[in-house]
């Protein structure tokens, strides 16, 4: 047996598995999206763009996803950045690791369980009851876009902190000293040195969170109470309740297209941003 044959033999089982369980199913979704719904639910073969023409029927789900996913990503970034900064720049090296691990630990426990905890906190017996003690009455938090955003930020915060921390930790601290020695205000140092140097971490964190949010189902299902729903919730409804596989497939294909387009635009933006940064540093 040649080395080439041996390599092929080692890769083949995984390759076949991925072809059968990933490439084939995704192709089926694409094919089904051009078909029609069978009267009893399910699918009949056809070649029509009818399902795609019908997509506006689920416009709200796309609108919610495309509003709350970027909003949630931004909120997570704003909350995560100061913490990552504190951990990377201001914390005693002896405590760094343990404090970072404490941020990441929740992320590795079931997101289902962590999300439903917010039903307690935001529900009638939780924060609203607390606010009533202070005389603020009639506040409704659960099953609102706010609740979903809180759930999102809570669920994905660790994923945002980690890459920013890594970027800031790599930053040469002497640059910050140099900047302040040369008489720069702390804010100037932050805007001209720290922030540009951590842009790669910000970009990675935002991308990870945004991609995961685009396919989110659990958080809106638990905290949106059917009023705030994402594309993921529409998909569950279409496949498990109304059994409209053709239309559901079109929605899934559209979701992936939207993801591809937004991520591509986003990457271009980041590339341009880091290009201008290099121009500045040369000056």
């Amino acid at each position: 047996m040649t080395e080439r044959e041996r390599n092929w033999l080692m890769v083949a089982p995984a390759g076949v598995w991925l072809l059968v369980m990933l490439v084939l199913p995704l192709s089926v979704v694409l094919i089904f999206s051009f078909g029609e719904r069978a009267p009893a639910g399910g699918w009949v073969p056809a070649f029509t763009f009818e399902q795609y023409a019908n997509l506006p029927a689920r416009l709200t789900a796309f609108q919610n996803t495309l509003t709350l996913a970027p909003l949630g990503t931004l909120a997570a970034l704003i909350i995560a950045y100061p913490l990552a900064y504190q951990l990377a720049v201001r914390t005693d090296p002896r405590w760094k690791t343990i404090l970072l691990v404490l941020v990441i630990v929740p992320f590795w426990t079931s997101i289902l369980i962590r999300s439903y905890a917010w039903i307690y906190i935001l529900g009638g017996q939780g924060l609203p009851a607390l606010l009533e003690i202070f005389g603020i009455e009639g506040v409704r938090l659960i099953y609102t876009p706010f609740a979903v955003t809180v759930g999102i930020v809570y669920g994905y915060l660790p994923l945002m902190v980690f890459p920013i921390y890594v970027a800031l930790d790599r930053l040469d601290k002497r640059l910050l000293e140099a900047s302040s020695d040369l008489g720069a205000w702390p804010l100037t140092t932050f805007l001209r040195v720290t922030l540009p140097m951590s842009i790669s971490g910000i970009a990675t964190g935002c991308m990870l969170v945004f991609i995961l949010l685009m396919g989110e189902f659990l958080i809106p299902a638990l905290l949106g109470g059917g009023k705030v729903f994402f594309v993921g919730n529409a998909l569950v409804d279409l496949f498990l309740q109304s059994r409209n596989w053709a239309f559901g497939s079109a929605v899934a294909v559209m979701l992936i297209l939207v993801m591809l387009v937004t991520v591509t635009i986003y990457m271009r933006l980041i590339a341009r941003l880091s290009a201008t940064r290099e121009d500045v540093s040369i000056m």
Binding site: L22, P25, V28, V29, F32, I211, M214, F239, S249
Partner: peptide, 14 residues
């Protein structure tokens, strides 16, 4: 990269 939910429905119908 593909969302888990799309993997789920794709596997189901396939």
């Amino acid at each position: 990269m593909i969302p888990g939910i799309v993997i789920g429905i794709a596997t189901l119908i396939a």
